[in-house]
Design a protein around this nucleic acid. Sequence first.
DNA 1: AAAAAAAAGGACAGACTTGTCCTATTTAGA
DNA 2: TCTAAATAGGACAAGTCTGTCCTTTTTTTT
Lengths: 185, 185
Amino acid sequence: MNKKRQLLIDTALTLFYAKGINHTGINEVLSVSGVAKNTLYNHFESKEALIIATLEQRHTLFIEWLTSKLEGADSDQQVITQLFTALAQWFTHCDPILGDFRGCFFINSSAEFSDQGGQISLFCKQHKQQCRDLIGQSLTNKDASLLDAICLMKEGAISTAYVSGDVTIAKKCITLLNITAKNIN
Amino acid sequence: MNKKRQLLIDTALTLFYAKGINHTGINEVLSVSGVAKNTLYNHFESKEALIIATLEQRHTLFIEWLTSKLEGADSDQQVITQLFTALAQWFTHCDPILGDFRGCFFINSSAEFSDQGGQISLFCKQHKQQCRDLIGQSLTNKDASLLDAICLMKEGAISTAYVSGDVTIAKKCITLLNITAKNIN
DNA sequence: AAAAAAAAGGACAGACTTGTCCTATTTAGA
DNA sequence: TCTAAATAGGACAAGTCTGTCCTTTTTTTT
């Protein structure tokens, strides 16, 4: 049965993202999901294995979300607009796919586990790289500078929205990046 | 004696920043500092009180560092150059004041404690606001847009340097922000 | 030098954590 | 229907954590 496995991943991801991984015990995942401890350890070798599975789940979800949001953009200006409009929706808790905004799950997880070079940090790094690649493919300007600017602003916006609580920042990025895009060559 | 109190804060800050707050127990702070548990709880009501004290310590240190790095800049272009050159030094572990780079202590702490509206999250938010104010005071262009761009890039650079391990990103910000600065009006 | 405050050094409680093991029950496949 | 796998439901071990309490020693102040 993969149903129990999936239920555990879904429950763990929700709790990990909402409360932080270290503040969520295995027992809480079990009581919320209604699954027995025996079953969890049949599917996952350890808590870390469950963490990795939640990272993979969130990664798949986020890439799907990002892909759909970038779809149909046929100019760099449109890529910028669509991307940061989508981020604004996420920040204001108006996105049904990504759920209640509590920052970036991967940035948060990297912060919780400062095991540099470890499995968790490595996964977060790869996630960011794939997001960058995806945005890069949507751009017609293949100069790396514009992509740099967009990704920097994206990371900055996520961090600012979460730490400073400024959810209006995503919209400002659109104006700023359009200035950059027009003058980068 | 404030010496013991300060020693506890220094030791805790070093460990908290290096390993994360949740992965650093009180007992480790005690054994590394050589202070007795009794003494710690005479100076601090709880672990959370010690955490707040380390945040205050780091805040003071960071503001001093930022102030010194922005000193003498008499153009916006120079503010940008000096700020991101300083960040580059920090990222490459070449800064003796801020110590080994492990991301932003405040972003990390916010990620660890998703107690939105809680004491820790609030302090992190205020720290970011004060950094913004300090940079804003150094700028001659009092339009908020340039300040927005600089702060967004700064947050993005810190996050990218830590999660993606790209320490070259700070230098790229200088070029990008100079484009923004020239075309923002 | 005497009195008071601070710190050391442990022991310990209580709660929490992950992970193992056992038996009974339910579910799925042959 | 019969068999085998999966799950439930606990008990439990071994470790962690924060925080309290005690006595003894050191340091500071009067």
